[in-house]
Design a protein around this nucleic acid. Structure first.
Length: 153
DNA sequence: GCCAACGTTGGC
DNA sequence: GCCAACGTTGGC
């Protein structure tokens, strides 16, 4: 079992959007960074858990927990010229980008703000708190996972 | 394979 | 909307 942190702009896809799926899975598309893709494709496993992080919004922070609910499969939005994630170098024959399905596990009653994360000394090494780290998918250690879960109580 | 130019991310 | 920090691109 691995732990992850997955960022999304709530204007594009929020945890409330996922909540409206009523327990159904939803694809996590649009990852267009090789490092993030490699995490998602190689290290991530069906059944892993991830924090859902809202970025580029009024109060950035962790808003809940999701579960990885599929294996990796081609991100078809890369094939669609109408999509903002279109990439002409990715074809159905040779897909460059992949995605996975996720499902909602828990919505935190209160958002764990970026500010609060920064103030937790157990989270000094958390990837998203490092300057300049913009990866949309990052690994979280078991210790970090537990420390953050404790903050949600 | 170097590196300058350019684009993107994301907090502020 | 600013800007720092990266990642990507493409000429050489």
């Amino acid at each position: 079992m691995n732990y992850w942190l997955m960022k999304s702009e709530p204007e594009t896809f929020s945890i409330q959007d996922l909540q409206q799926c009523n327990g159904q899975t939803h694809c996590w598309d649009g990852v267009r960074n090789y490092q993030a893709r490699n995490f998602m494709r190689d290290a991530m496993q069906h059944g892993d858990l991830a924090f859902f992080y809202h970025s580029s919004c009024k109060i950035p922070g962790i808003v809940g927990i999701i579960a990885i609910a599929s294996d990796a499969y081609p991100d078809h939005t890369a094939f669609d010229p109408e999509s903002k994630y279109y990439d002409l170098k990715s074809t159905p024959e040779k897909p460059r980008w992949i995605m996975r399905d996720v499902k909602l596990v828990e919505v935190f009653k209160r958002i764990i703000t970026l500010d609060a994360l920064r103030q937790n000394e157990k989270l000094q090494d958390l990837r998203i708190l490092k300057p300049g780290n913009r990866l949309s998918i990052t690994p979280v250690t078991k210790e970090q996972w537990q420390a953050i879960c404790a903050m949600s109580q």
